[in-house]
């Protein structure tokens, strides 16, 4: 694991932030607090690990605005919204935009820590998947153009000879390319290759 998970807390109320601080210190959770959405944005980078606890109502830039910005940036940080008494509409909207949870002030449910932990687990899982995909893509991207052409035709189930004919190269050369592809992608069977190809296609479609 490259980075420790951090709980990022954005709330304009100093008392609430202070109490968060005490709670996080008590449970030994790494955390960082911000008094405004802007302050957080100033710090933000895409490698941030952990989760975001975000007050939905804040002056100048609200929690929802921040969420929008992060979505635009492709952030993977799960967001737990803190909502007030009459903010159900806002909370629903936040969920629709991909927030993982919202908890209502003044935190009647004693499970804030659980929620945070869930979010952290979720992020951890997401992060792992992302890391795998990134690895896969990295490998895929290391293929040469010719190797990519060969991969495409092989994945269609064409025999090496047919591929050689299609590409106007010798069958041996096709065999050599296949061997290189298998090696670069770290697979051994044709079935693995086909599955990988589908995975990559879905990945590139997703973005």
């Amino acid at each position: 694991m490259s980075q420790e998970q951090t709980v990022y807390i954005v709330d304009d109320d100093p008392d609430v932030r202070e109490s968060f601080t005490i709670l996080m210190e008590t449970v030994g959770q790494s955390f960082k607090e911000y008094d405004s959405a802007q302050a957080f944005l100033g710090d933000y980078h895409e490698d941030m690990r952990g989760c975001l606890v975000l007050d939905i109502r804040m002056p100048r830039m609200s929690g929802l605005d921040l969420q929008d910005r992060l979505n635009d940036e492709g952030s993977l940080l799960p967001i737990i919204f803190i909502t007030g008494h009459g903010d159900i509409t806002l909370a629903v909207e936040a969920m629709r935009r991909g927030a993982i949870d919202f908890i209502r002030k003044p935190f009647h449910e004693q499970n804030l820590l659980d929620r945070i932990n869930e979010a952290l687990d979720l992020e951890d899982g997401k992060h792992k998947v992302l890391m795998d995909k990134r690895q896969l893509l990295d490998r895929f991207n290391s293929l040469s153009d010719r190797e990519l052409e060969v991969l495409e035709l092989v994945a269609q189930g064409k025999m090496s000879k047919v591929v050689a004919d299609d590409l106007g190269i010798s069958e041996r050369t096709v065999e050599a390319h296949r061997s290189h592809i298998m090696h670069k992608l770290g697979i051994h069977t044709l079935a693995q290759l086909v599955r990988l190809k589908i995975q990559i296609e879905t990945l590139s479609e997703a973005g």
């Binding site: 109320d13 609430v16 109490s19 007030g84 008494h85 935190f107 009647h108 804030l112």
Partner: peptide
């Protein structure tokens, strides 16, 4: 709603502190 927010702040702080002390 503004007033509720104003009351919620200290109550939220209290809830957080209670969880901390519980821990």
């Amino acid at each position: 709603s503004g007033i509720a927010h104003e009351i919620n702040q200290p109550l939220s702080a209290i809830a957080l502190l209670v969880q901390a002390s519980d821990h």
